[in-house]
Design a protein around this nucleic acid. Structure first.
Lengths: 351, 351
DNA sequence: CATTCTTCTCAAAGCGCTTTGGAAGGAAGA
DNA sequence: TCTTCCTTCCAAAGCGCTTTGAGAAGAATG
């Protein structure tokens, strides 16, 4: 069923039917009702490709998904996508997902825009001096960045959480509890969020005259496995940390396991704070020792980005171009006063 | 840059350029090279909407993503999508993802097909007597089902793992180890895979004259939290199970925690087998007690489905229409002989 | 030399939609 | 009655591509 057939069925012209469908005023209310009724009966749906060709719009948001054989998928991607979907479904928007080799994202962005079948683009996994920002600006396509780059002017539309502040606050809490030697299980070093988190932590330490020991920092994909091995490495240091910051609850999972295995009690022997993206699969409050976290829902971020993008495309309302969300610091049982014989590993590693 | 401009630039007709680009034989090798070169220089990309309108094809696979506010996102979805992407990226295919309320998937399928901007459709999360199969057959759009429905003829293209056999085998192993009372932490009861897994388990028990106790079965979303609460419930039973089957390593995560909390040793006090979708985030071999699993890579499944779909669309090669993959049973440390004083909880719950 | 093939290229139609620029018909004002 | 103005509808152009049916030029054949 296409427009032509539908209009013949109704004995109207294509113009009138199209107008009735798209809410133009110059069509009789009764006629419109008749058209709408026919649509319901026949199940007619406008062809999106034709619609796009004619208008340049068709209700789609583009995103590139980094993927390659052997390259681990990211739990956070799915959760974020769900957030985007929550909002998109309301406006009958869909996503055009272009898979891309992680090293080829820039070119894929370009192709995706040039293909002409997206109304707006969303990009994430920002890196330092990310070239995609300048690219998209030059392409003059509406876009929003999830996160922020580093080392380039921040005059682009973004939604980010204040990673620096989050990890600053978390570190400060640990310092107040008496911890002096704090480790960091971070995401991959090339991501801007990881850089900011580390900076936030370093800043808080510096304020108390402490420095961040690089041997107490690990950059890795945020999996259980890396959390485990990273934590183990920390525990093998001559002087092990009494507190750990984790960039994800998934990392914390492995870290907790390593801690348990070493016979250390979380919240007393060792304190731990994780960043919580609010993954439904893994809740910090349900850890055997509930985790103190810096919380910010990834899903809400997705939802908000979709909302901003759609508002922009449909010209619904003017929403702020730049948003920096504050993560909530939620204290649970995994943080406690630094142990008195803090940081001297000998007694443990000997045992 | 569009075809017209490109052809003017080259001093050729649009037809010739189009033919050169699409590999038609009737164009001079030299001319073709000249065209290809111009494409590289200008970065020309055909407009997908126009291409689709003209040909009916544009290299896109449709999928509907169940999502709603408050409805948890599924870790497995992301991993599967990554698999699809691995293959799709090679043929310059993309995905059109239509978010949908979980109860509205059927209508969304219909809309997605009617919208005319997909070449093929992929559906998953199959339920009993799933109406989408008949729908897609009637719509005469190429499609593949991930999983299989139950209670309708299986004359449609699918890729599934043999869930029945997997859980049958796992159960049999436990029985051979002397376990008599076995519990199941399963996925949601309306999903076909969950039904089959339960059946496989029940069948194996029946073969040894045992029956599956419904109080030892939990159907729930596959999150850590549900694994934990489910396991706890099992341990509160007057006679608790000595072995547990989990439909996901994520469920196992919670189950293990509950077991640890109860002071039970996995592999001796209690045995545990989980189904492993090979999530990079969570490896069964890295659990504190490495998990015995039935393994089948979700990502490979995604990749294979993309391959079949694309082969079909591009008419590359004839691939089998129906595939049933066998999951591998991998024995690790989480399974061991049933304890002698099997299943009597009193001694524990008193402690 | 005329004729038939090849080989290469082109003009134009058509995919299904939106949108511009009227036109027809009736109501209202002169 | 004639003009003007709405209201309601329509014909046709155009979005950027592919593809059909043909034409021009050159090579091969009679």
């Amino acid at each position: 069923m296409n427009l032509k057939q539908l209009s013949q069925l109704l004995g109207l012209s294509q113009t009138t039917v199209s107008r009735a469908l798209n809410g133009y005023p110059e069509v009789n209310a009764e006629t419109r009702e008749r058209v709408l009724d026919a649509v319901r009966r026949t199940g007619y749906r406008p062809n999106r490709a034709a619609q796009r060709l004619a208008t340049g719009r068709a209700g789609s948001i583009g995103l590139v998904m980094p993927t390659a054989h052997g390259y681990p998928s990211d739990v956070h991607f799915g959760e974020f996508l769900a957030g985007l979907g929550d909002e998109a479904v309301r406006h009958d928007f869909h996503f055009v997902i272009n898979p891309s080799h992680p090293d080829d994202e820039e070119a894929t962005c370009k192709r995706l825009v040039a293909s002409g079948n997206i109304d707006a683009l969303f990009i994430a996994y920002m890196r330092e001096k990310d070239p995609r920002v300048a690219l998209l600006k030059s392409l003059s396509v509406p876009f929003i960045v999830h996160g922020r780059s580093i080392g380039i002017p921040t005059d682009y539309p973004y939604l980010d959480i204040d990673n620096t502040a989050a990890f600053h606050d978390a570190t400060k809490l640990l310092i107040q509890l008496g911890h002096r030697r704090i480790a960091l299980l971070n995401g991959p070093a090339h991501f801007a969020f990881a850089i900011r988190r580390k900076r936030g932590m370093a800043a808080a330490l510096a304020e108390s005259g402490l420095t961040l020991d690089e041997t107490c920092v690990q950059h890795s994909p945020m999996t259980d496995e890396h959390g485990f091995s990273g934590m183990k490495r920390f525990l093998d240091l001559p002087e092990w940390p009494t507190a750990i910051l984790c960039s994800s609850t998934v990392l914390a999972l492995g870290a907790v396991r390593a801690l348990n295995q070493a016979g250390l009690k979380i919240g007393s022997d060792v304190s731990l704070i994780a960043h919580d993206d609010v993954l439904p699969m893994l809740k910090p409050e349900n850890f055997s020792v509930p985790l103190t976290t810096t919380r910010s829902s990834l899903r809400s971020a997705g939802s908000r980005i979709a909302k901003r993008l759609i508002s922009r495309i449909l010209k619904l309302e003017i929403l702020p171009e730049q948003e920096l969300w504050r993560a909530e610091l939620i204290v649970r049982a995994s943080t406690g006063p630094a142990p008195h014989r803090a940081g001297r590993a000998n007694e443990r590693s000997a045992g």
